[in-house]
Design a protein around this nucleic acid. Structure first.
Lengths: 244, 244
DNA sequence: AATTTTCATTTGTCAGACAATTAACCGTCT
DNA sequence: AGACGGTTAATTGTCTGACAAATGAAAATT
């Protein structure tokens, strides 16, 4: 771990990189305690505040956790899927909002990924996942539901579908895409007829997954994707027309 | 932005959260300059080092960038896809290694995602992407190629395939999965016969994408997935047998 | 008018100090 | 001996104050 004081990067960034590399390479195993802040400061030949800034950078990525007290210190953190979800959602949300990714692009990505899960879900779905899917579809049919609540339930339905695939890597990858899209979805107003159509598709998707019919689920998802796209387009077109 | 000194969390973590929320909600727009560290310290009623730790946390997530000098300060950063790639790859790599995700699971996820891209790639592929795919397939056929170089070329081939789908969100999502898997792939030794089979599939996939034949590309990818799985299994089985 | 110098502002870094927390250690009492 | 309680040392969290380095703007000079 060598530090170049003349580098363009901050010292704290360099130190963070050095430690991060050690973690990613497996050099520092999970739950290994790092040297104390004072020792690190001595090793890297910097002051303690600088070391602390480096450690906070790593903590922000959930790479380490810190504990106070006599036996405390900074420990290499076992990255949980749960931790990764949060970061992925933050990152995806900002990517979508800051880079003006079109609804079309985001929607396309989301449904493409979901269709990738469908065959696996059709094979492995548990009663649990099916129950969630059906419960959400039922909730969506309740009268007086706000658009926001409808969207939230929609997200829950699709998360259950993805989780049914039984592949944590896929669940993790998709969580970001699905949840990050919620703000965009919330911009849409769903009429009663729109909702009925979507709920019908949800129910038929649940049926297909239930019956292990992968091909049928895929077709239905494609139909749902198309319908969502057209819905969004008409909403945006109408909004654009009102402006003039 | 209120800070609770009695909270379980560190002050710097609370301050980082407050600012992060303001950014994600759009309250702080891109390129907006934050107050200076001294001003923030006064606003939050903490010392400057504490504020700095909070800012470093945000910098670690590429949410802000800082600049020295008279007109310097911390600015809300426009998150680039490129920045997001790096974080995604780090996170995915650690998730796979720390949580002992099986090769089977990782491989399944990767090919499921790739197959989701195939239909789009078949529609939109540019000569550029096709050229890359063919170049990499050709490179893979060169004699004397190390296993590692073969894997690297494999990654390049598949990245081109994904990029050919022309959807940056998909590219971003998949970059993590594909690159994070490389360490796992590097554990495999590819015999000449294995390589020949893989290269043949790569060529046929490129042909299918070239000819806009989505269905055919999908089938070939499925075949490649199966073959990779069986290859890995036999390698691992052989290794296990040698141990005894 | 163009150029150079000065200056104010801001981040980067350092040194030292104290508070808060926590587990281990030690002594006392039962 | 064992349980209980106080002490202590180690470690992170926070604060204060200071100086260095960078940088653009303003002022002074040519």
């Amino acid at each position: 771990m060598k530090i170049d004081p003349d580098s363009a990067k901050d010292l704290s960034a360099q130190i963070a990189s050095a430690i991060r590399d050690a973690i990613v390479s497996g050099d520092l195993p999970v739950d290994k305690r790092l040297p104390s802040e004072s020792e690190l400061a001595e090793q890297f030949n910097v002051s303690r505040p600088t070391v602390r800034e480096a450690l906070k950078r790593l903590a922000a990525q959930s790479l380490i956790r810190t504990q106070r007290g006599a036996t405390g210190g900074a420990f290499v953190n076992r990255l949980k899927f749960e931790d990764a979800y949060g970061q992925q959602i933050t990152t995806s949300t900002l990517l979508l909002s800051m880079n003006a990714v079109s609804f079309r692009t985001a929607c396309e990505a989301r449904y493409a990924l979901e269709r990738a899960c469908a065959p696996l879900a059709a094979t492995r779905r548990s009663p649990d996942h099916l129950a969630t899917m059906r419960a959400e579809a039922h909730r969506q049919a309740q009268p007086g539901l706000t658009d926001e609540a409808f969207c939230a339930s929609d997200v829950a339905f699709h998360r259950a579908l993805v989780d049914a695939a039984g592949n944590p890597v896929l669940s993790y990858q998709l969580a970001g895409a699905v949840e990050a899209m919620q703000p965009l979805m919330n911009m849409i107003t769903f009429s009663a007829r729109d909702r009925a159509k979507i709920i019908d598709l949800h129910n038929r998707i649940a049926d297909a997954i239930d019956a292990h019919e992968a091909q049928s689920a895929d077709t239905l998802l494609a139909e749902l994707a198309d319908y969502t796209q057209s819905l969004a387009e008409s909403v945006f077109a109408e909004r654009a027309a009102k402006k003039t």
